[in-house]
Design a protein around this nucleic acid. Sequence first.
DNA 1: TCCGCCACCCAAAAGGTTTTGGGAATCCCC
DNA 2: GGGGATTCCCAAAACCTTTTGGGTGGCGGA
Lengths: 362, 362
Amino acid sequence: MLTQKVLGVKGEEDPAMDGPEDTGRTAAAGRGAEGGRTVGIKDVARAAGLSITTVSHALNGKGQVSTRTRERVRQIAEELGYRPNPAAQVLLSGRTGVIGLAAGHQSSEPWERTYRPYYAAFTAGAMVEAVDRDYALVVVPVGPGTDLWTRIPMDGLIVVDPIAGDPVIDEALRRGLAVVTDGRPIDPAHAGLPYVQSDIVTGIGLVMDHLHDAGARRIGLLSGSELDSFTLDSEQTHAEWCAARHLPAAVERTAPGEPARDAARRLLATRPDAVHALNRTYGEAVLAAARELGLSIPGDLMVTVMDEAEPGARPALTTLGLDPRRVGSACAAVLIDRLTGAEPEPVTVPSRLVPGESTRRG
Amino acid sequence: MLTQKVLGVKGEEDPAMDGPEDTGRTAAAGRGAEGGRTVGIKDVARAAGLSITTVSHALNGKGQVSTRTRERVRQIAEELGYRPNPAAQVLLSGRTGVIGLAAGHQSSEPWERTYRPYYAAFTAGAMVEAVDRDYALVVVPVGPGTDLWTRIPMDGLIVVDPIAGDPVIDEALRRGLAVVTDGRPIDPAHAGLPYVQSDIVTGIGLVMDHLHDAGARRIGLLSGSELDSFTLDSEQTHAEWCAARHLPAAVERTAPGEPARDAARRLLATRPDAVHALNRTYGEAVLAAARELGLSIPGDLMVTVMDEAEPGARPALTTLGLDPRRVGSACAAVLIDRLTGAEPEPVTVPSRLVPGESTRRG
DNA sequence: TCCGCCACCCAAAAGGTTTTGGGAATCCCC
DNA sequence: GGGGATTCCCAAAACCTTTTGGGTGGCGGA
């Protein structure tokens, strides 16, 4: 009677599944959209002995319909269980009330990222904002070989971490969708799109100042191979900061597919006294590589790391924390502003420096 | 130049935003669906000097079209940047390729739950399964006063924790949507719907046996006021287990809005030697109440708790762990089976007992 | 009795696509 | 050169709703 297997036991009574209604909705209820007919406005009109127009007017409170008729129509529609077909309304109005969130990097496998804290928090933020403004959010996978998202009706699309020549953006624009990106679009062809970005420039500045104040003079950067604005801005700010102070600016990038630890080893080979890692994984890699070399932290090497997750408790590592939920929320807000006719400005969401043990020297 | 405020600086060049294409897509790209026209099949037909029918056939590889014509049509469509309008296809085919996930209890505020680990993991599981089977998942808020979800086109709906007379289920059926529930539908009117449930009966049995083996003889249950199958099954299994062994079966429920700790105090007043709490919050409440009474754990009181979160590391409390991701995945699978014509069986996903310190006695 | 007005209602178009059921050429063979 | 088979293409219906631009009938006033 009780099974540990996935397939369990059947429910109770079987043939008693039509029940309450009287019209031919039984089949429809059973088999989704394909089977039995759903009751349309035409059916209501026929039942009321009126024209489709009048029924529509009566139900929507639009035209000139006598109160008596209006009430009668409402009554009949209720009895028949009439519900306007959303697809028809979409086709007619051109508005779906849905915004999409393109999840999955172009390069990596689409869904890996979804599980990561950044996406989860981002999605939550975007969803709440969307719902508050009467939009629904659909998370759609994108990536090479996936065009599923192009088949689902929506009004706009949020693209996370756009890259140069981002095909998703091009396709979305071609379809007449409004687009907002999380991360400044790199491609000149996409300049002018509204976007939301985390304040990397200030953030990296904070990190560098923090490390410098703690005594670091050779601050390395462990970066990635992505071509998004986050990576680019991080590298550039790091470089400029170092150049302005005539300090060396070692940068290593993990090649696509390469284990981060290899890049970390290369970076540590340049003998930095501090390293900033562009994500948590890279941070782990730096720690591991440091351990290999017998470097103590923060004594021999200070480490800071960019953290995509929600702001939380005090971390062991000094982190530059993003606020993904707020970014998601801002993306949805900007997109919906765009859809409702506004000409939104780019938004920059601040990032926070949270000092931890890994830079507490002396 | 760098601002900590949310509103940042404007992007680069402003008037250079039309760019690559030649057709009148500029306006469309700018203002979403409402502004400039998108290029339709009609435009392709006109440009090719062919009928709409032939264009459709050529592009979909359907009818009898000469290879030369087919190629020419493809060419022209490409040049014009034609993309079929998804809304029109939905209207015609009656299939959207979208399944909904109704998030938010009927009673509580809609979104609180979304953040909770169960929903997050459930959503992730459902989303991956949906995408694997070429469906998109849209998470829609439901609850009193929200009919947003009824306006978005979809083929089916997942309802989490259905209650008796669940209005969302009724509405969905009325619309001809396929419905699957997470948790066995309580309402007799909804019997026959496919569902997925966690194996509470076995799970509670495991917990009770575990506590009994550890020496407990007066095992209390801290329950909630929800009328879902999870709560009902838990209470019933607990009661039957106790009855079969002629042991007392104290149960307390938190009233709606009541702090869980009050109910926990009432339960502890019955002097149980073990308590099972139906969710994490209730578990905390039991611990707090025990602390008030100076009870040591597990010495004076053993505690187990139902955990909605993902299976993780060994917990301090002995937990009965659900597998929300697998449940979500199963819900999507069952729903899509239904949509593709199958008559799916109810699915039961096993739950796991993970012993922790709170029942380690002697 | 006729005109105009008002209250109420309706036909048809529009929205964009797919599919059905032909129709018009062209070709082959007798 | 005519019949039939092919080949290629097209008009129109269907999907379901909303909105535009009337249209009809009754009533009051002249």
